[in-house]
Computed example of a mutant assay.
Amino acid sequence: MSKCDRTPLSFREILDLPVSVDLRTAARAYGMSMGTAYRLVGLGTFPCETVRVGHRHRVLTVHLMHALGIEERPLFADDIADGVALTLFD
């Protein structure tokens, strides 16, 4: 991803995120620039909790999803076709 890439993450991309993400990825999920993200973190008003790890900020994906109003992972037809959903019902 280039430094100028401000394309917001799609719903599917958000659902496929790892357990935690960097501030750049979290900012993309909200459709904001890195400058805005750092300013909000500095003010303590970023839309979800951030964790400082050394000189970097991390965001737990569960907090990111909750702040975006995503409470649970939906089931997609291709998940069922891939057999992913079968483990949910066993």
Score class of each variant (00 low, 15 high):
residue 33 S to T: 08
residue 33 S to W: 07
residue 23 L to C: 04
residue 40 L to Y: 13
residue 43 L to V: 03
residue 52 R to P: 01
residue 24 R to N: 10
residue 48 C to Y: 06
residue 29 A to H: 06
residue 29 A to N: 09
residue 27 A to L: 07
residue 34 M to T: 06
residue 34 M to Q: 13
residue 44 G to E: 04
residue 49 E to K: 15
residue 42 G to I: 09
residue 48 C to A: 13
residue 37 A to E: 13
residue 42 G to S: 10
residue 28 R to G: 00
residue 36 T to W: 07
residue 30 Y to L: 15
residue 49 E to M: 14
residue 26 A to W: 03
residue 29 A to G: 10
residue 50 T to G: 00
residue 44 G to C: 01
residue 23 L to P: 05
residue 40 L to S: 04
residue 50 T to Y: 05
residue 29 A to W: 06
residue 44 G to V: 04
residue 38 Y to D: 04
residue 23 L to T: 00
residue 37 A to P: 13
residue 48 C to L: 11
residue 28 R to V: 00
residue 26 A to Y: 02
residue 52 R to A: 13
residue 27 A to E: 04
residue 38 Y to R: 14
residue 29 A to Q: 08
residue 48 C to Q: 04
residue 45 T to E: 11
residue 41 V to K: 12
residue 45 T to L: 09
residue 38 Y to C: 12
residue 27 A to I: 01
residue 47 P to R: 15
residue 34 M to R: 10
residue 41 V to F: 08
residue 26 A to F: 00
residue 31 G to I: 05
residue 42 G to V: 03
residue 51 V to H: 13
residue 45 T to C: 01
residue 26 A to S: 14
residue 47 P to L: 08
residue 46 F to Y: 11
residue 24 R to A: 15
residue 48 C to P: 03
residue 44 G to N: 08
residue 34 M to S: 10
residue 36 T to S: 14
residue 38 Y to A: 06
residue 39 R to T: 12
residue 48 C to V: 01
residue 24 R to K: 15
residue 30 Y to G: 03
residue 47 P to K: 11
residue 24 R to Y: 13
residue 48 C to K: 11
residue 31 G to S: 12
residue 25 T to S: 05
residue 46 F to N: 09
residue 31 G to F: 06
residue 42 G to E: 09
residue 46 F to Q: 08
residue 23 L to R: 07
residue 23 L to Y: 01
residue 48 C to R: 03
residue 23 L to V: 02
residue 47 P to C: 10
residue 32 M to T: 02
residue 46 F to M: 07
residue 42 G to A: 02
residue 43 L to Q: 15
residue 39 R to E: 12
residue 32 M to C: 02
residue 36 T to Y: 01
residue 43 L to E: 14
residue 29 A to C: 05
residue 46 F to W: 07
residue 44 G to Q: 09
residue 29 A to F: 01
residue 32 M to N: 01
residue 31 G to C: 03
residue 35 G to I: 03
residue 51 V to Y: 13
residue 28 R to H: 07
residue 27 A to F: 04
residue 35 G to L: 06
residue 25 T to Q: 05
residue 51 V to F: 11
residue 24 R to S: 10
residue 33 S to A: 05
residue 45 T to Q: 13
residue 33 S to Y: 02
residue 41 V to N: 11
residue 31 G to H: 07
residue 33 S to Q: 03
residue 40 L to K: 15
residue 37 A to H: 02
residue 44 G to A: 07
residue 41 V to M: 02
residue 51 V to W: 07
residue 35 G to R: 13
residue 35 G to T: 07
residue 30 Y to S: 04
residue 32 M to R: 12
residue 45 T to W: 00
residue 29 A to D: 02
residue 26 A to V: 10
residue 24 R to H: 09
residue 44 G to Y: 01
residue 24 R to P: 00
residue 52 R to M: 09
residue 38 Y to Q: 14
residue 24 R to D: 10
residue 23 L to F: 05
residue 50 T to E: 00
residue 52 R to L: 11
residue 26 A to R: 12
